[in-house]
Design a protein around this nucleic acid. Structure first.
Lengths: 242, 242
DNA sequence: GTGAGTCGATATGTCGACACTTCTGCGTCG
DNA sequence: CGACGCAGAAGTGTCGACATATCGACTCAC
């Protein structure tokens, strides 16, 4: 099991994955799944890393049974790869698959923001503006971690208030799945663009312009893909680890 | 465990769920998950039915371990409900949730057909026409089971050739999830409409008119929801079982 | 050196067992 | 007559064990 972060300082991932996904928290399966999921999405376990149940069992001081169950759940979430009679590993996502996931996310995000715009109440919009104001001050302060956390909070806010709980679950799961790429943008250069994108999207929400909202969030999602793509190929060229 | 079909003859479900979903077929988990999934999607196990692991273990002549793992997989697929320390049950889907699932499916189907139209080769279109021709003759013969199977085959064909394997998996899983509603249209009255819809969609594909294709498949998906909705409320009024 | 074969060491899939919780049918009390 | 409580039955979560399969370092032929 590898415990080396190996992430460049400036390239901070935007995903602090919420783990309510794993209900049954009082059960060992839930806790183990949550912790391993965190290890993966936060980069302590890199794609391909060994996840054999014996080692995990000794790490968690349990038997192998709940470990196996947790790994099966994570496999369904796309974080882990399991082949019969072979040791489970952290999932490895190809460039082609990243593109697929982003395309789908763009579509789902578009539908999500449309539903939000259709259903949002005045209080929702006020709350949205409050989060956006926070994002604005953090951008001015160039406070990377807070900025990223708030950006995620804003997106999660939209997802949570879109009025479709199945979509909410699906989008959260999708976001987590994509986070195994371990690639985020170089935020220090992107504060203003990111902030501006979100400002414009918020305006579209305020004005109940769902067509514009869909267009904006779609392009924002695809821009995320663009950055990851660049970074991925850059790594490949400089001979960095996969 | 209830083994009573209790489905009206004319209301045939359109979903013969493909079970390649459950890889690891040489393992007990895979076989058990596949068989229980069939039991649920084909109506032998109705929503709310008891799925306690002891009974299933004796039915499959195994220990409870692979049973528990299979049920956890099916829970992730949305076919089974598991609460901590309670007996697993076949998932019960509310009307509101059905609407949510259909909305999402409509969006995903729209994206799927757009990708198909963008990527389809000449051979793909010919193959599509072959399936459509089969559908046409079966409609003329009023052969309900074959007609439904072919309609499903046509839809699966589009899904399989849309060029996005993640979307393919997601849509198949989504379809299976929705099939626990155990509600299908009264096909005998709908042959011509269903056939016509698919013919028009195929024409849109042939003419590479993705906007039209998206519009058609979206409305088709929502029409499916409409029928289920009617049927569900009709059942409720006549006091039939949920 | 490079590749196939070999043989412990190590992991996996499945099992039966155990403590503890939930379920269920029955008798009691208001 | 219905709500409540209780004890036995039944089910769940977790464990340690075992047969079997994979892994990996080593050997040996080429």
């Amino acid at each position: 099991m590898e415990h080396e972060p190996q992430i460049q300082p400036n390239f901070v991932a935007d995903t602090h994955v919420p783990l309510e996904l794993y209900e049954r928290q009082d059960l060992l399966v839930g806790q183990i799944a949550a912790e391993v999921a965190r290890d993966i999405t936060e980069g302590r376990l890199l794609p391909g890393a060994d996840l054999n149940s014996v080692e995990l069992a000794s790490r968690f001081n349990t038997s192998r049974t709940p470990i196996r169950e947790a790994l099966m759940l994570l496999e369904k979430e796309g974080l882990v790869e399991i082949l019969p009679r072979r040791r489970p590993r952290v999932a490895h996502i190809s460039l082609a698959e990243i593109a697929e996931l982003y395309d789908i996310r763009a579509v789902l995000n578009g539908f999500m923001i449309r539903k939000f715009i259709e259903n949002a109440s005045g209080e929702d919009l006020d709350e949205m503006d409050a989060i956006l104001a926070k994002l604005r001050t953090e951008a001015a302060r160039r406070d990377v971690p807070s900025f990223l956390a708030t950006r995620t909070a804003l997106h999660n806010f939209w997802v949570d208030r879109c009025g479709n709980s199945s979509l909410q679950r699906l989008l959260r799961s999708w976001k987590m799945r994509m986070s195994v790429t371990r690639l985020g943008g170089d935020v220090s250069r992107e504060f203003d663009r990111i902030l501006l994108d979100n400002e414009r999207l918020a305006i579209a929400c305020r004005e109940h312009d769902s067509a514009l909202g869909v267009a904006l969030i779609t392009s924002m999602t695809h821009f995320g893909e663009h950055m990851i793509r660049q970074q991925q190929t850059a790594r490949r060229e400089t001979g960095m680890m996969p």
